[in-house]
């Protein structure tokens, strides 16, 4: 049942043996040791398993790994250095336990790609599918605004 699929993972060409029923987040964790995306609610509601497939944010727990064949998959581990979004989350202390943070970082990058200067309403709508059980929401919204400023300045 397993078959080899090739795809790009954080810029590098990779191959993995996957079964049709394995999800992308399972394969990232078990085959590649990438633990930034993690399954939490398992229903696409919490955003902890967020990864980018060809630049589009998806819930890795609802996405079959076999469908990533030929695609570019990006995780929070992808960048060698911290980007403006990660810096802003640190500067605004926009987390406590950090479990949800990789998902928030990836969704915020996509939000700022689409809306470089988002209103608070746009931020809240865009991130409504990301849950922070430590409830760092006020700091997260401030971090997104700071990241937007940092991006515009650079």
């Amino acid at each position: 049942m397993r078959r080899a699929i090739q795809f790009r993972l954080n810029g590098a060409s990779v191959e993995a043996q996957v079964a049709p029923h394995e999800t992308l987040v399972e394969v990232l964790r078990e085959e590649f040791g990438l633990f930034g995306a993690r399954e939490s609610c398992g229903q696409g509601l919490c955003g902890c398993c967020t990864v980018l497939v060809d630049g589009t944010a998806v819930s890795g727990c609802l996405y079959l790994a076999a469908l990533a064949e030929g695609a570019h998959v990006q995780t929070v581990e992808g960048a060698a250095e911290l980007d403006a979004v990660q810096e802003a989350f640190i500067e605004r202390a926009a987390f406590q336990c950090g479990f949800c943070t990789p998902g928030f970082v990836l969704m915020t990058r996509q939000l700022l790609d689409e809306h470089p200067d988002p209103s608070e309403d746009e931020i809240r709508h865009y991130l409504s599918g990301n849950l922070c059980r430590c409830a760092a929401y006020p700091e997260i919204i401030e971090a997104v605004k700071l990241a937007a400023r940092k991006r515009r300045q650079s």
């Binding site: 696409g44 819930s59 996509q110 599918g129």
Partner: peptide
């Protein structure tokens, strides 16, 4: 409708 990630797929 749901959230951006679900609508993406």
């Amino acid at each position: 409708l749901s959230n951006v990630r679900v609508r993406n797929v």
